[in-house]
Design a protein around this nucleic acid. Sequence first.
DNA 1: TAAAATGCATGT
DNA 2: CATGCATTTTAC
Length: 651
Amino acid sequence: MARVVVDVPLAHLDRPFDYAVPDQLADTVQAGCRVRVRFHGRLVDGVVWELGDSTDFAGSLQPLSHVPSGEPVLTPQVAQLVRTVADRYAGTASDVLRLALPPRRAAAEKRPTPTPDHLPDPPDPAGFARYQAGPALLEALAEGRPARAVWTALPGEDWPTRLVELCRAALSGRRGALVVVPDGKDLDRLTAAAARLLPAHAYTVLRADDSPEKRYRQFLAASRGAAQVVLGTRAAMFAPVRDLGLVVVWDDGDDLHSDERAPYPHARDVLVQRAWLDNCAAVVAGTSRTAEAALLVESGWAHELVADRAVLRAAAPRVRALGEDFELARDPAARSARLPSLAHETARRALAAGTPVLVQVPRRGYVPSLACARCRAPARCAHCAGPLGISPRPGPGGARIPACRWCARPAATFDCPHCHGTKLRASVVGESRTAEELARAFPGASVRTSGSTSGVLATVPSGPALVVATPGAEPVAEGGYGAALLLDSWALLGRADLRAGEETLRRWMNAAALVRPASDGGHVIVAADAAHPVVQALVRWDPGWLAARELADRRELGFPPATRIASLAGSPEALAEFLDALRLPDGADLLGPVPERPRPGQEGERERFLVRVPRSEGGALAHALTEVQGVRSAKKALEHVRVQLDPLELV
DNA sequence: TAAAATGCATGT
DNA sequence: CATGCATTTTAC
């Protein structure tokens, strides 16, 4: 008898079904292998959750139809993780399995999987010597202890090498390791470090942009236990690592860690869950720090892995802030590029010293939102602290008055809690300075750009050049940048998103970390008010301080991660039915509805509700939502309600 | 998709 | 209150 999870999207069928194993398939079928079965009269794909010898099913079992191969692609540990993630995000196991298992390619299965010929020694602890508990962490990993750390990497840190050293420590103790990074550029750097520090075939790389054939081959290297170290982008969070001893997520604030397919799991949360289930070590790492990571520290789940202030001072560039009323450069060319004189001067000196200069400009297209006209703090709803915006549709009477984007209450009057200003203004929308403008301000300098439209550069050489990049696309400069200019800060800080502060610091620090230390002439100029806490955190290079402060603020305002929030989106009718069936957990707060901006390929009016519960009720909320989804799918409710837990954007 | 379960009218 | 037929439910 085989217990099979069938690949159907219906919530009320999210459980295994028992099938008889015909004699001729008995030799092939294995726990964790793919099968085809007759279900509801049709042939569907499925995975064998487990093999057993008895069934609770009263009727007579259907036989398995086909077993394409006995390759066990779903390990018991990953099966447990899939179930846990489905429950946590109010999704189904088959949805999560689609993320966890790459499509099968028969050719890749037939190829032999190369194995490493030796285990490595533990890594040289010198790389982590700058962090107080660094060498101790490596030791714990080598001994297979479930150490947990939030690692804040120093500016200029060769973090890919450090992360591979963590893997090597685990591997030296015969334990597997899994590292998830946000994008291909980071993965390239990580892979290069692995090639230097790990035995051949001891690691495998899972990336979305490989061909299906190669993806499956790389996956099999892990599932067959040949490669015990897996490096990858977010889909690798489910990789079947043999004897998992360590999970690592790099730059967990990057929104690429959030999967955009249902049930929208986040790599950090999944890996933390995985560390719980497998009782293995975990490292949440980055140059900056998220409020979620701060919560892991505050709750005692993880220790901080940080350098002390003296070490930090030696590594960090000199950071200076310009207020809003900065003096524009006297040079007319620089003025046309709207460069403040200090920024102009700093860049000019770095170029003269023969070093490259990084200019970070935000991507265009941020959603305009409302801020206090006096102090520019994002304007928040007096009732639920959601962001204020101008409704896309005129209200009754045709007036377009500001309203909360969460609970839709109009904000007839505004009283800024920070400065008691009463006027609102639209936040600055990001508008990139063009490379040509900068070129005019620095005649003779070569200008290179790196961004999603112009193409992302991985590295730039050490000579003098202006490098214009959007956040996340900053190339690494050989020997480090002489200076960085962080421009258009209000476009970042003024965003309505509740993560705007943390996200701004993350982007600034990721750019500033590529600059040489101050002792080596490295300067960073940020065009923002020095009094702003995010700017203070950058100047003092103290991401832990900002993250702790963010966490405290969010607790005060009832935001995640202090609370858990579910977003429910659909037609007004479907939402009404859904809410009618929903039994809200204790202390739940229902906000909305607000109109949803239409998504491509969707028609009809759509709305959104938010359900907010205390963090302790997160499980109960997910359970209640699952229950409603189950009832609706059993009733064949035609209109789908999109349920998303802990959505990244709460605009 | 098709078998099983349920609902319902009809005739004794 | 059996019987036959239509409709609904289930999904192994």
